[in-house]
């Protein structure tokens, strides 16, 4: 096992973590501000990926596809919020789970209806294809590196937006006391729609970025959604900082677990058994991490105690 391979896996873990952050940020914001648990967040990821693949297919430009993914997911998110979800903010979590589960059925079947069951493909743009030579002689995919940079930039932008702008002040105020800020004259309904559309756009962006390395298909959002849940449970629901820490932790744990566990097991069992036991255990690793975090901190690393 060479140092270059380990470095590559570490970067893959970081890339996965950054992508999970884009998903979790919206989920945790929506929960923090509106108190809504949104299972349909993964569908917005899928909407972003489909929009990117279709527009990139028509125009031939990856960048137009990326812009389309942001727009399409934000519009879909705002529509869903206005038509269905805003009626659910005062309901209990059970109603929210059921309604957003129903939305998943509609998004998945609707997409299959419109675009068929076959996956679409989105190509990596020419300027980002190939590899790049990093310091210490590490060769790494240019596109994956771009995802890391892009995700980090979005994370920074989000922290500035929440911490330094007027919209951010309102979002934070909405998190701590929604009645008070409504009484102060903030249009709370519009604020909610904006927050939801923002979260949706981030999910759509994640979908488009990942769409170029995987296939774009119905149901692609669900595994990512569940990982995003794990992330925000670890980080503490409602905390953007927690989402960032949780996302990197989950991304790293999952990637390194899949890489290292089979290798470790090879030391004391035969090759085939080692790789099957190792990969079975690796697929459970992040849930074990989550359970451990919850045993010691039942409301996550950065969550407010319930």
């Amino acid at each position: 096992m060479s140092a270059g391979l380990v470095a590559e896996q570490l970067l893959n873990g970081l890339q996965f973590g950054v992508m999970l952050f884009l998903m979790s940020a919206g989920l945790t914001l929506v929960f923090g501000v509106m108190g809504l648990i949104n299972l349909a967040h993964g569908s917005l990821y899928m909407v972003g990926a489909y929009a990117a693949a279709l527009v990139a297919g028509w125009t031939g430009s990856f960048w137009a596809g990326l812009a389309a993914s942001l727009m399409a997911a934000a519009i879909a998110g705002a529509l869903v919020e206005m038509v269905v979800l805003r009626r659910l903010y005062r309901r209990d979590h059970l109603d929210q789970v059921l309604a957003t589960f129903a939305l998943i059925l509609m998004f998945s079947e609707g997409t299959r209806w419109l675009f068929g069951a076959f996956p679409l493909y989105l190509n990596v743009p020419a300027s980002l294809s190939g590899t790049v030579l990093l310091p210490m002689g590490i060769v790494y995919s240019k596109y994956r590196l771009a995802i890391i940079v892009c995700g980090m930039a979005v994370a920074l932008g989000l922290f500035i937006l929440i911490g330094r702008t007027r919209l951010g002040v309102r979002i934070r105020a909405g998190q701590s006391d929604r009645q008070m800020i409504a009484a102060l004259g903030v249009d709370i309904a519009t604020l909610y729609t904006v927050v939801f559309a923002l979260g949706a756009a981030l999910a759509g962006l994640a979908g488009a970025l990942v769409g170029a390395i995987q296939s774009v298909e119905v149901g692609m959002g669900e595994p990512v959604l569940i990982l995003a849940f794990v992330v925000i449970v670890i980080g503490g629901i409602g905390s953007i900082k927690g989402a960032l820490v949780g996302a990197i932790l989950v991304g790293m744990t999952d990637t390194m677990g899949r890489f290292l566990l089979p290798v470790m097991f090879k030391n004391f069992m035969d090759g085939a058994t080692a790789s099957s036991v190792g990969s079975a255990l690796a697929s459970m690793l992040i849930y074990i991490v989550m359970a451990t975090v919850l045993i010691f901190r039942p409301s996550g690393l950065y969550g407010k105690p319930a």
């Binding site: 129903a102 509609m106 079947e109």
Partner: peptide, 13 residues
């Protein structure tokens, strides 16, 4: 399942 989803939303709401 699309129609099932729509129906479920009506039931919840």
């Amino acid at each position: 399942q699309f129609w099932l989803g729509a129906l479920l939303i009506v039931v919840v709401l």
